[in-house]
């Protein structure tokens, strides 16, 4: 089987400082990869390099495109990369405000990607928006409300709907549950897990919350100081951590 995403030797420097370095991995269709590490460990830099928001200084990000098979997205032209990020890719920001247009209605937020790829039928755009509101458990009567009137959890679910409406194959998530209270987190995780299974999504999830990766991720990478210090199956890494830093991370989790 061809990997959906092949990452080879990604490196990003901020002047003399390392953002992330020598990161390589393969992601297969339907697989969820978690990236954990403390603040400043380079996990968001890595995610932004993978998603094309930052240009890496070295390395390849080879994506298995529908039309042409595996293509290096780092060297592909900007229109192609932008097209990819509107169709086959999705990016869920930590703060819903970064990923939503707060001044237009929920329906327009979901419809934007459809219109960006050429859908010009109002009725069908609207019915798909309502369908997706339903799938992320937002009442369809809210379709014409602006996200400013939504709670934090609803905004995050709306952001997910907006991203998944074009049926992407790869989802990048940056702390998708950050800033939400635990019961809302739990429902969001439930929803994400359902959508990932149902749509056969591949996902890369950056988080510092080990419970999130335990629930969602098949595989886990642990980062420290811009480098991957440990990688493996999620349960294996969390239950039998080998690297000293991973051991510290796992033992730091509060037991309730």
């Amino acid at each position: 089987m061809t990997p959906l995403l092949q990452v080879e030797g990604i490196e990003k420097r901020y002047g003399a400082r390392i953002g992330c370095a020598a990161v390589s991995f393969d992601l297969y269709p339907g697989e969820v990869m978690g990236i954990v590490g403390e603040s400043g460990s380079g996990k968001s830099t890595l995610l932004n390099c993978l998603a094309g928001h930052l240009a890496p200084d070295a390395g390849k990000v080879v994506f298995d495109t529908r039309a042409e098979g595996p293509v290096d997205t780092v060297t592909m032209s900007e229109p192609e990369r932008r097209m990819l990020s509107r169709t086959d890719w999705a990016f869920v920001h930590q703060h819903a405000r970064d990923g939503l247009r707060m001044s237009v209605s929920a329906g327009a937020n979901i419809g934007e990607r459809l219109m960006a790829v050429g859908d010009r039928h109002y009725g069908s755009i609207r019915s798909r928006a309502i369908d997706w509101l339903d799938r992320v458990e937002i009442d369809e009567s809210r379709v014409d409300d602006r996200p400013t009137s939504f709670s934090g959890g609803m905004q995050q679910r709306l952001q997910i709907a907006r991203n998944l409406v074009t049926g992407p194959r790869l989802v990048f998530m940056d702390e998708p549950t950050g800033g939400l209270d635990v019961s809302v987190q739990a429902r969001l995780l439930d929803l994400l897990r359902g959508l990932v299974r149902e749509m056969g999504l591949s996902a890369i999830i950056v988080t510092h919350d080990l419970a999130v990766v335990r629930l969602l991720a098949d595989r886990l990478m642990v980062m420290k100081d811009g480098r991957v210090v440990e990688a493996g199956l999620t349960d294996q890494v969390l239950d039998d951590p080998q690297h000293a830093y991973t051991q510290l991370l796992v033992s730091s989790v509060l037991q309730v």
Partner: peptide, 18 residues
């Protein structure tokens, strides 16, 4: 330059929905 004009229709969508 990239002919990304989907946003224009977001405004028209908003018009119709409101």
């Amino acid at each position: 330059s990239l002919e990304e004009y989907g946003m224009m229709h977001v405004k028209l969508y908003e018009d119709i929905s409101q």
